[in-house]
Design a protein around this nucleic acid. Structure first.
Lengths: 188, 188
DNA sequence: GACTCTCTGTACCGATCGGTACAGTCTCCG
DNA sequence: CGGAGACTGTACCGATCGGTACAGAGAGTC
């Protein structure tokens, strides 16, 4: 076994960028082949089930990144202010201040949503749960916490759309600072 | 001339739903043919430049609908409260309370953005201008007005993404009511 | 009834789609 | 050094892609 897992691990981010840029249906095998430098032979060696498996594993990798870098810290933190700041910072880095698009969001909007419905649903639900529980722990009512949390997630997604549509990354940065403020505002 | 323009007008909404559901790249000619009941012959009779022309005209039609039903009322109104309420109501109807996706947003996220960059940019810019000027007229500073307006647009887009991802239209309705509230809040 | 012009279905085009087959190359291990 | 198994490129598959060609169908005009 030469480098079975490590090669695969280096592959997923490359695949992710192709899916991000072209969506699931738009990401053709030849685009993927070009982006990775791998022929179909190698691609199908790593992913015997083809495109769908590639997308599934890319989504799982993204999910894993957020689990470690965003969700888990949210769950274990006792300091809402620091936790929210860390989340915002992580999100800003991940989305390159609005210049990078959210693959999970892209898939949610497209026809391939049904194919990946469970993964897409899970990703946002776990984020929402982790964030709203942090807010609850900090003294907010369950309903208000859930509401603020949902508002935060949707603002991030919308900011990515609008920043790209208007080609203005400042929209994303500003939206993140709004999110932070609304999340940490005193109870109504 | 049998019914040259009227047939075309009936065609565009059908085309719009196909692009909405599958994105630009995912909307194949056969999907379009099936949705409209028209063969390629007819399709290329109405749209000699093919798929790209279809999408361009669909975007123009959507733009026209928003111009008449959303942007113009925003521009001509002197009553911010009524104007915002009318906008929210129109948006809720148009997006079928979150069950329908925004084609302009879908295209903004995809690889076809570059192809339609001008139309996408224009759509959001004109909405943003109309809304922020309404807010300015009502006494808000230009900077704050622009900020609140941008926040409103991005919240609507994000709510569409999240409502679809979590398969929960209530997210959209709730987001609209938040938008309304933040738009009409007293100056900080 | 002949002519015009809008509209339509069908057959077809080369290119590309996602996927398969397979012979080879490389590397590690004994 | 020889075999095993991980990897790779190439040729190929049937299906479908977006688009074109074209012969008609149908309705309106004279």
């Amino acid at each position: 076994m030469a480098k079975p897992v490590s090669g695969r691990a280096e592959l997923l981010p490359l695949l992710g960028e192709v899916f991000r840029a072209h969506g699931y249906e738009g990401a053709t095998l030849s685009l993927i082949s070009e982006a990775t430098g791998l022929g179909k032979g190698s691609l199908y060696h790593f992913f015997p089930d083809g495109k769908q498996q590639m997308a599934t594993e890319v989504l799982a990798e993204i999910d894993g990144w957020f689990e470690v870098n965003i969700f888990a810290p949210l769950r274990s933190s006792g300091d809402p202010e620091a936790a929210v700041a860390a989340m915002i910072e992580g999100v800003d880095r991940y989305f390159r201040s609005g210049r990078r698009v959210c693959l999970v969001g892209v898939i949610a909007l497209g026809a391939s949503r049904d194919m990946f419905a469970v993964q897409v649903h899970d990703y946002f639900k776990r984020w929402n749960d982790a964030l709203s529980r942090l807010l609850s722990r900090s003294g907010l009512g369950a309903r208000a916490a859930r509401q603020r949390s949902t508002d935060a997630l949707l603002t991030i997604q919308g900011a990515l759309v609008l920043a790209r549509a208007l080609d203005d990354p400042a929209i994303f940065r500003r939206a993140l600072s709004d999110v932070s403020e609304r999340l940490l505002a005193p109870p109504d």
